[in-house]
Nucleic acid binder design. Structure first.
Length: 260
DNA sequence: CTCGACTCCTGTTAGC
DNA sequence: TGCTAACAGGAGTCGA
């Protein structure tokens, strides 16, 4: 599913939409418009304007608009960005492998004939004008050890749940969390504030490596743990049968032998 | 402020 | 073969 990795890939692809005049939009799915955003307001903010920058914080993609507005795009777990009919990502874990134009929930048509569309089968994504960027924690790609200590490694909540809290660190989804904790050898159920200093540093080292690997390999489904994330799956490191639990409301796989 | 439980969405898949 | 129920997880809401 789209995590920070996929959104960054979408953002890069979305740069093809910069500096092109917006002629028309399709925003007919009211469910997909969030935070009180209306089709009328989108028209007002976008028609005749251009995108001047494509940014990303965590899983939120933001287009700056020449009108002064900002356009926030969220992809839920099955949304894709398609620019000029070419999809930024060909494969999404847990999404349909079919490709149906009926799943277009929001479309921007440029005057040059091209288009930018969010194709989202399950409609878990959304579009909002002027999203609240300050509600998000530091982005996972650039987070520092100090920021982790201030906002993530605190409290007695399970660490896995903390990592999924976008207000504390933005961009980590279920697969990045499981892969990072698995590589770092940390039990996802451990209290967020229970790590020793060397564990905290090791976590950040592995987080950076996971993000780099996932970017290089093309998605958050490319982890070494991923093939074993199934009932009865075995740890790729030591062969132990993986634990399957629900932590932070998400299915969590971990190795009972080397994750402590 | 914190935190767990609940809800929403719908295509796919496991199981009968 | 055809149906149903479970499942996936990002994100918002609500109540304690």
């Amino acid at each position: 599913m789209p995590e920070g990795i996929e959104i960054e890939i979408y953002r890069q692809a979305g740069e093809a939409g910069l500096h092109r005049t917006i002629e028309r939009i399709e925003a007919d799915d009211e469910w997909f418009l969030k935070d009180g955003t209306t089709a009328e307001a989108l028209h007002e903010a976008l028609i005749g304007e251009q995108f001047s920058a494509a940014r990303r914080i965590g899983k939120l993609m933001i287009y700056d608009v020449t009108s002064g507005a900002r356009l926030g795009l969220r992809y839920g777990m099955t949304g894709r960005l398609i620019v000029d009919e070419s999809a930024a990502i060909g494969y999404l874990e847990y999404s349909s492998q079919r490709d149906d134009p009926a799943w277009d929930r929001f479309v921007v048509h440029f005057a040059d004939g091209g288009a930018l569309r969010i194709r989202d089968p399950r409609r878990l994504g959304g579009v909002a004008l002027d999203p609240n960027e300050s509600a998000l924690g530091a982005d996972a790609f650039t987070v520092t050890l100090g920021q982790l200590r201030d906002r993530v490694f605190v409290g007695t909540v399970p660490l896995k749940a903390r990592l999924l809290d976008q207000a504390r660190i933005a961009g980590i989804g279920n697969l990045i969390a499981d892969e990072t904790l698995w590589r770092a050898g940390i039990d996802p159920a451990r209290a967020a504030n229970s790590l020793e200093a060397k564990d905290e540093k090791r976590f950040l080292t592995h987080l950076r490596a996971v993000l780099a690997d996932f970017m290089r390999d093309g998605g958050s489904h490319t982890g070494r743990l991923q093939p074993a994330r199934t009932r009865g799956g075995q740890c790729p490191k030591d062969g132990e049968e993986l634990l399957r639990r629900e932590i932070g409301g998400r299915t969590t796989f971990s190795c009972p032998r080397h994750q402590r």
